[in-house]
C-alpha cells in the first residue's frame, strides 16, 4: 500500500531550471544497490555536493540553504524529470522527503513513476510557478505551500491555483492504491483478450 496523498502543507524548494533530467536528480553512479532504498543521499548529488570533495555540501544549492530545510515540495521548470526512465529519481525524491513537484510540465515516464510511488506531479503554468517561487523565496520557512489534491488546488502567495490531473492518477494517489492489484480485478477480460490474440496473431506465440 502506497502513502495516501490528500492535503499536504510544506516548505517548498525553488529550483527553477528547464529540463531537469533524471540523471541530475539521481546520477547513475549513485544507484549502487539492487534496491529502491538508500537513494536519498544521492539526490541531486552533482549539484548538492562540491565536485571532487566527497560529500561536502555546496552552499549554493537550494537544499543546503537556510529556510529550505525539511522541504517537501519542489518548484521547478518545464520538462522536469526528462531523460532516463530510472524510477530511482522518484525513490530518491521520496526518501529525501518530497511529496510533490510543481512544474509547468514533466517527462512522461517520470510523472507515471511519481504516481506509482505516492508523489504528486503537479502541473501549473510557468508564470504561476514563477510567482509562487518568488513568494516562497522571500521567506521559505514561513511561506509554506498547501496542496489539496481532492480539491485540485494549490494555496500559495495569498492565492488559490487550480490544477488538472488525470482522474485515474488522482484516485491512485488519494487512495494509495496498488495498481497491480487494481488491474488484477480485470483478470477475466485480460485472459479472454490473451486467448483471442493467440488465434488472431499466431506467429507471436
Amino acid at each position: 500500500m502506497m502513502d495516501k496523498f490528500t492535503r499536504h502543507e510544506g516548505v517548498a524548494a525553488v529550483l527553477l531550471r528547464s529540463n531537469v533530467d533524471t540523471d541530475a536528480i539521481i546520477p547513475s553512479r549513485e544507484m549502487k544497490r539492487v534496491s529502491k532504498e538508500g537513494l536519498g543521499e544521492g539526490l541531486f548529488a552533482g549539484w548538492r555536493y562540491l565536485a571532487g570533495a566527497g560529500r561536502q555540501k555546496n552552499p549554493g544549492f537550494v537544499l543546503n540553504q537556510d529556510g529550505y530545510q525539511g522541504a517537501s515540495i519542489l518548484l521547478s521548470g518545464p520538462n522536469f524529470g526528462c531523460g532516463s526512465s530510472r524510477e530511482h529519481a522518484v525513490w530518491a525524491l521520496k526518501e529525501f522527503g518530497f511529496r510533490a513537484v510543481i512544474a509547468p510540465g514533466f517527462g512522461a515516464i517520470f510523472a507515471s513513476n511519481c504516481v506509482r510511488n505516492g508523489i504528486l506531479p503537479l502541473v501549473l503554468a510557468a508564470g504561476q510557478v514563477a510567482k509562487i517561487a518568488e513568494w516562497v523565496a522571500a521567506d521559505p520557512a514561513r511561506n509554506r505551500v498547501v496542496i489539496d489534491l481532492p480539491a485540485q488546488q494549490v494555496e500559495a502567495a495569498g492565492q488559490v491555483y487550480s490544477f488538472d490531473i488525470e482522474p485515474g492518477a488522482r484516485q491512485m494517489l488519494v487512495e494509495g492504491l496498488d495498481s497491480v492489484a487494481l488491474t488484477q480485478t480485470r483478470w477475466d477480460l485480460i485472459q479472454a483478450f490473451h486467448e483471442r490474440r493467440r488465434l488472431s496473431r499466431p506467429w507471436l506465440y
Binding site: 524510477e87 507515471s112 506509482r116 490473451h194
Partner: peptide
C-alpha cells in the same frame, strides 16, 4: 515505449498497462 520499474512489474504480472 519506455516505462519505469513499477510499470514493468505491472506489465510482467498482468501483461497489461493502464496508460493515458
Amino acid at each position: 515505449w519506455g516505462i519505469g520499474s513499477s510499470e514493468a512489474e505491472h506489465a510482467l504480472v498482468t501483461k497489461t498497462l493502464r496508460v493515458l
